[in-house]
Nucleic acid binder design. Structure first.
Length: 271
DNA sequence: AGTGCGGCCTGTCCGC
DNA sequence: TGCGGACAGGCCGCAC
């Protein structure tokens, strides 16, 4: 499911309901996620107060007075606030119950998501420590991309989907940003000028910010903390539009697989 | 070091 | 209507 805008939409949606709340219970119905959910979470988190709800790349960090819960939504995960009387359905794997009577419920049919736990600095957790800059931060710009791409022959789309290069750009927004920047997704990363990388960095930021305003993209599973879909799907310029007319030039949008992922582009506008 | 794959899962859709 | 296969918003871990 979720790329950065969806994760951030989720973060914003749940924060008001969980921040400052005290955890009264954690129920794990299915621990077999991407990594096994650590045992004894209820004991670890009982009576802990939620201090903050942050995001790093596509990871959500619930920092508490006892430690930090690190949540990743994988391909099909969603988090929502539910009241006590809403019975869990299949694929509702984890509930975190708060003293205000609400529960934070993780649903993840494909179970590519994860729920991790650390008592130390979550940003130094092995899975987070090597993440590249946040795409919406000043650290991410054309110069960073240009330097990172030096000597690399891999496709530029693969490069910007590499979380060590930039954190949180997934398959949809990579295609969208490359379209905006006019760069062919298969172009070798090391053969792109600094100037064009400047356009690409700007395009990444623009696309992510637009999607954020719309509450993210719902293709299938994604819902925000209140169970509502995002509306950016209707604004997608090339993703999923194979054979349709390019919105700029009218050429047929093409699809091809790069790095095992479907990629959409206009063969005329993107070189 | 960088690159390209296999694999982890379930659900859905398409063609036969 | 049933069935096999492809595909889906992520990304680690491994072989080369």
């Amino acid at each position: 499911m979720p790329e950065l805008p969806e994760v951030e939409t989720t973060r914003r949606g749940i924060e008001p309901y969980v921040k400052e709340q005290v955890i009264v219970d954690v129920e794990v119905r299915e621990p077999r996620l991407r990594w096994r959910v650590p045992a004894g979470l209820a004991q670890k988190l009982k009576d802990a107060r939620v201090l903050s709800v942050e995001r790093r790349g596509k990871y959500l960090l619930l920092s508490t007075s006892s430690g930090t819960l690190i949540v990743h939504l994988g391909m099909s995960g969603s988090l929502r606030m539910v009241t006590d009387d809403i019975a869990p359905q299949s694929h509702d794997h984890v509930d975190v119950s708060f003293s205000n009577g609400l529960k934070l419920r993780l649903r993840d049919p494909r179970r590519f998501g994860s729920v991790l736990w650390t008592r130390s600095d979550p940003f130094r957790h092995p899975l987070l420590a090597s993440l590249g800059p946040e795409p919406l931060s000043h650290a991410f710009d054309g110069n960073w991309l240009h330097e990172t791409a030096r000597g690399r022959r891999a496709a530029v789309k693969t490069l910007i989907m590499n979380s060590r290069v930039v954190a949180g750009v997934g398959n949809i927004y990579a295609s969208e940003a490359l379209f905006l920047a006019g760069i062919n997704p298969a172009r070798s990363a090391g053969r792109i000028s600094a100037r064009r990388f400047g356009s690409l960095a700007d395009a990444v930021k623009q696309v992510l910010e637009e999607a954020l305003v719309q509450g993210g993209t719902t293709l299938r599973d994604f819902v925000n903390g209140a169970g509502e879909p995002g509306y950016f799907a209707q604004s997608l310029r090339v993703y999923g539009r194979e054979g349709e007319a390019c919105i700029k030039c009218g050429s047929a949008v093409r699809a091809r697989v790069l790095g095992q992922r479907a990629s959409y582009y206009c063969p005329r506008c993107q070189r």
